[in-house]
Design a protein around this nucleic acid. Sequence first.
DNA 1: AAGCAAGCCTGATGGC
DNA 2: TGCCATCAGGCTTGCT
Length: 278
Amino acid sequence: MPELPEVEYARRCLHTWMHHATIEAVAVEDARILDDGTSVRAVVRALEGQRVLEVRRRGKWLRLELAGTLSRRSGGASLLFSHLGMTGKWVADAPDAPARRFEKVRLDVVKGRRRRSVRYLDPRLFGRFVIATQDLPAWTALGPDPLDDALDPVALREKLGRRSGPIKAVLLDQTVLAGVGNIQATEALFYARIDPRRSAKSIESAEVKKLLREIRASIDRTLALQEGPEIQYVEEAGATNPFTIYGREKLPCPRCKRPLQKMVLAGRGTVFCPHCQR
DNA sequence: AAGCAAGCCTGATGGC
DNA sequence: TGCCATCAGGCTTGCT
Ligand SMILES: [Zn+2]
């Protein structure tokens, strides 16, 4: 379940591998990853021969800006959007390496004289791989990014004030804050000691401040975990759970030792301590 | 071995 | 009527 920290990690990788690189060859190994109506041919035509001008992230979206005389002439895409869904992953291999398990797309790139085969892997099809000529509506609609943008507690409180739904559900709305996922929301609400079921409009300004701080802290903590060469997702077999309460239902609350509870909130699993979070 | 988990889109419903 | 916000369901499949 990539959330913002994992996507930020992916951005750094893609930047290293592809910034100012040229895409020499493209292979779509599983066309189901493409949007309906997008053909493999269209993707290959849009990407091959292109130079990568910029790799950006906002929230959980990645955007590669491309430029190449080839596709410019044919009116091709100049943007590649990537969303990791919950199991997506970018890796780089040697140019002649065989396809990996779950490989969906392969981009063979050259940067200087270094050649790499950059692959998008995704066991499921929750991720997106989209070529476009302009920003996607989902990209444009994103709220401020907790890592990049200055977060204004006053503006956020105003936004929350118009929402009656549970605070946790509203935090997951990417137009409110870009990149907050189920884990970061769960963790930040625990540290801010706010009950996830409370109506968003009931959150006082001091609590909003605290919440913002804890969201940033939670993201920073997760980011610090990804020092290795490849992302480890919590759900991957054998991985130990690095989080404070996420995935720890029934275990003692780290603060009061009463058992943590789990419920479904807006369709998402939610762990919390009813005693500490109010 | 059936069911869970994730993010997000869609479509239905509720409310003003 | 129109516009939101909210919510349930579906997508997918490896893992418990
Ligand atoms: Zn507690």
